[in-house]
Design a protein around this nucleic acid. Sequence first.
RNA 1: CCAAGGCUGGCAGAGCGGUUGAUGCGCUGGUCUGUAAAACCAGUUUAGCCAAGUUCGACUCUUGGGCCUUGGA
Length: 332
Amino acid sequence: MIKQSFSTSKKILVILGPTATGKTDLALSVAKEFNGELVAADSRQVYTCLDIGTGKYPSKIPLWGGDVKRQKYYWEIDGVKIWMYDMVDPKTQYSAFDYVKDAMRVVEDISKRELLPIIVGGTGFYLRALIDGFSNLAIPVNQKLRRELEKLNLEKLQNKLRLLSPGIWEELNESDRKNPRRLLRSIECLSMYPYANKPQIPNLKSQNYNILKIGLAAPKPFLYEKINSRVLGWIKEGLIEEALTIHKQGLSFKRMDELGLEFKYLAKYLKGDINKESLIREIQASTRRYAKRQLTWFKKEKDIKWFDVSKNNWDALVEKLVSDWYNNLYDS
RNA sequence: CCAAGGCUGGCAGAGCGGUUGAUGCGCUGGUCUGUAAAACCAGUUUAGCCAAGUUCGACUCUUGGGCCUUGGA
């Protein structure tokens, strides 16, 4: 791969980090300053109607006011376009593969229009798939095979994989070897493409972009406090009503459970299994756990420039870094 | 006031006269190549309401006290 000089290679800014650190707020202000458009990297913001709890709204624009225009495949907040929101109906399943396929197009389009793509989100898996790519990502799901494999218990899945490829089995760690979902996927990939001719999908790294990754984080007590009050804010803004509406429109409790966290507990609440007080507590707790997992994931990526949002001047520091990078003064 | 049941780890909740305090949740750390706010792994106990007694030995039996829950009045 030939490295182009900074002045000619196209730039992409990535803003990532755990939930409730103000990624969207930052991305919007950076977009205004550097003439950019946002590309969301969140596994649930891709669904229509899941708005409040997935954090589609920035904190400064309350739901009932502010300049928010919702178009078919993008939103426009304060004049800034946000892509990769509302891609499909929540009844449909949207995968990391779908995400990469769609987001690649969006990023390239923004870039072609001479604007700065700002990828913003907390789903580390999607981010890595889009930026670095995964070699198995483009291998499609085999429903028939899955239906069969799903009947097998852990031990049988393990044996099956060991038989198909002792090498791949050996490479798995303790955790993955006991994870039926991963085992199943490995078997699926191997049985469909036993040799090396796997289908591929392009990623950003292979397109020679100049990427700056900015991470927002904070010490846990600070972050947890933010999460707790954010959840309270969601409730005030109508999270429960939103869930009720979606359910009335036909989103099953089962699917809500699959969509995870706040929807998992919202479903329980709507069914009458828990009261409002524990609904709030559960959403807060699970969001905290989620933030921890995000932190664990991002810890391994060494090319992130981290900023502590509990500090006073963090936004000025970010601004300086982005500005230097944008003007080719910063060497990454 | 009477009756019945209960009181076990941060929480929920089993079992047992003596051995490794089941299990779940939580918590801490971690894993990660199409469900990723998912799935999974590892770690996380000087517990037994108080007192007296029975016993070689009690969380487990007996008695008294305290507290809680339910039913009665």
